[in-house]
Amino acid sequence: MNAIRRALLACALLGAVGAAAAQTASGPLPDLGGGHRATAQKGLKRDAVCTRCHDEMDPKPILAIYQTKHGARGDARTPDCQTCHGESMKHLKGDPNVKGRAAPDVVFGKGAFKVSDDKLREEVCLACHKGTARTHWDGGQHATNGVACNNCHRIHSAHDRVRDRKTQTEVCFGCHKEQRADTHKISTHPIDAGKVVCSDCHNPHGSAGPKLLKKNTVNETCWQCHAEKRGPFLWEHQPVNEACTNCHTPHGSNITPLLKSRPPFLCDECHDGPHNSRTPYGTGAAGIQGGLLPAGANPNSNAVGRACMNCHVMVHGSNSPAGAYLHR
């Protein structure tokens, strides 16, 4: 055998060894230690049915699921690929009736195959994720509007944006455009700062409360952070007892603090006869600078600044024995 042939053979042998080494480094069944080994090996063996094709070369980061709870193979509850995507025999073995490769049984995301019906997609998740926050999923607003779990959640991604407070609102604003606009108004909760996020008040998985609020009522939700408004007070204010949203709009407002309207006009929406609520205020509510009153005039303190609330301060309720008129 001449030198060239020896060299070629050596290259071939080295190449084959290198390939074997590379294959082992990315192989689907790594050498495992003890403990949950059997559970993990069983799961990884099932995964290998899919990951032998859907490996690190896949345009989507499929394998990133192993950074999440869905990929912790040592936990016996963890699903494998086919638990969620179905056995998908036609996808694996081919379907003579389909040109090209048949779709898996359950397709979650847009891509080469048509996305499965939202009911089918959500049933996969609800098979394990029963109860607790999802108790009221069936018949809820998201379920009846065709929003399935993976419309918000990213299962194969190491970073599930909707479960991260820093990025959650971007996901919700994908559909809830009005609320997106509201967060840019001059008076808001600290939503843009990431301190209050949608899931602090809402349970998107379903709720017995109004507007998917996580508590039973509007007030109970607000009191999670604003317990000073809870009372019970000696002197109550009826619209406050019934719903904070009678006066406030929580996503954002042009009128501080998160008000739907401003005193005196806000108060005029419920009060007519008593005291000054019967009095119309036009440009006088803007004070001397409003143009109607001459310089040196005395603006009416029932109309300017905080108007009614200059004196009726304790609008959420008062616990002072002198506070029957919410002055104290």
Binding site: A40, G71, G74
Partner: peptide, 12 residues
């Protein structure tokens, strides 16, 4: 934790 990396662990 060992719950990562296609291992067998559950600690995170």
């Amino acid at each position: 934790g060992d719950a990562y990396g296609q291992g067998f662990g559950i600690r995170r």
